[in-house]
Nucleic acid binder design. Sequence first.
DNA 1: ATATGTGAATTGATTCACAGCG
DNA 2: CGCTGTGAATCAATTCACATAT
Lengths: 214, 214
Amino acid sequence: MAHIPTATVSRLVTYLRILTDLEEADVKRTSSDLLAEEAQVSAFQVRKDLAYFGRFGTRGAGYSVPTLRRELRRILGLTRPWNVAIMGMGRLGQALADYPNFDQYDFILKASFDSDPAKVGRHIGGVDVYAVEELDARVAERNIDIAFLTVPASAAQEAADRLAAAGVRGILNFAPTVITVPEGSFVEPVDFVAGLKRLAYYLQGPGERAKVGS
Amino acid sequence: MAHIPTATVSRLVTYLRILTDLEEADVKRTSSDLLAEEAQVSAFQVRKDLAYFGRFGTRGAGYSVPTLRRELRRILGLTRPWNVAIMGMGRLGQALADYPNFDQYDFILKASFDSDPAKVGRHIGGVDVYAVEELDARVAERNIDIAFLTVPASAAQEAADRLAAAGVRGILNFAPTVITVPEGSFVEPVDFVAGLKRLAYYLQGPGERAKVGS
DNA sequence: ATATGTGAATTGATTCACAGCG
DNA sequence: CGCTGTGAATCAATTCACATAT
């Protein structure tokens, strides 16, 4: 299969959410036009994105909501549960542990880790807190697939290295820094402060940053 | 000036963070090679990104850390503070209100809004909670530039419409849905559940989703 | 009749090679 | 001589037009 643009993967996630809403509203059929409208992209784009993976519609009649939803869940790897751990039980880690309905999203919180001995052994937001020294053993024991990386930026790369060494192949990186992982592992950044700064750029507009020189 | 790719804006935010770290470490000069290494992009890319906005280096000698940092802050619109409000004081809104060192990031939390009368009038995480009915008055009074949109997905578009009508031009959208805003306003999505689903896609690998049909 | 699926055309972004300057 | 700055070339993604299937 051809290489898939990362933007396509992001849009597939959006289409899946729209289809889930439609199915909840008991809508049976939909079209690339409707999906495009909801996702704020072109209908061409919707069809092209889907075409990377197969042919899911009926010409003249559009798409079956339950069928397309099932196919997107399969494509995105959401037909089986994924085991998640939190690395770093500071404010953000604790807030994520408290996040409601985690299992509803096919992701199951199985453990958390912190280097602070005062936190180790406690049970925060429904999850056990382990020492970082136990990482290898607990990741193996609980089949952890994905970690939320919620340590300070200065500790993020080392924590990512330890997670990768322990066998965690997916990292959702909340730390405001770029981290690298080995071949075969994956990072998704989640950095709301970066989002804020991009907003500042767009809100400022072109007036304040006219090109200098030449 | 030529149109700037959104990916360039994201990278500029990364370069600025690296420069801030360098300045804290008292490093005086740097190069496109070092910035590229830290940001995990090519040195060509760094120079091209900067070239959209001007010439900031010295040939043969690289870049002055304080100068380039100052220029990036100017380009990104971070030479003046931005006033922020939180729309929706549920779990996530409250966690964001508690976020430490907000002002250090040039963003000042000025107000929050919620439709629950039990929350209105309280003071949560250092910020006053107002009724949504007061939105127009408080946005004008406190010069709110940017809102964190932390209401449920089903209420997100209507809340965004009200924010735009009140004069808020920037929205950091934490709700897992696509929202539209008027011309001249801007949205940055912050959706960690979408990030998780992208991870599931990459972790699954190509085996499980071979193209069907043809 | 109607809406999908897809090769071709276009547009956009990244990479490259080297000219330009200190 | 070294590293930046930048037009040209390559590569990738999006848009389009229409052939295709029901």
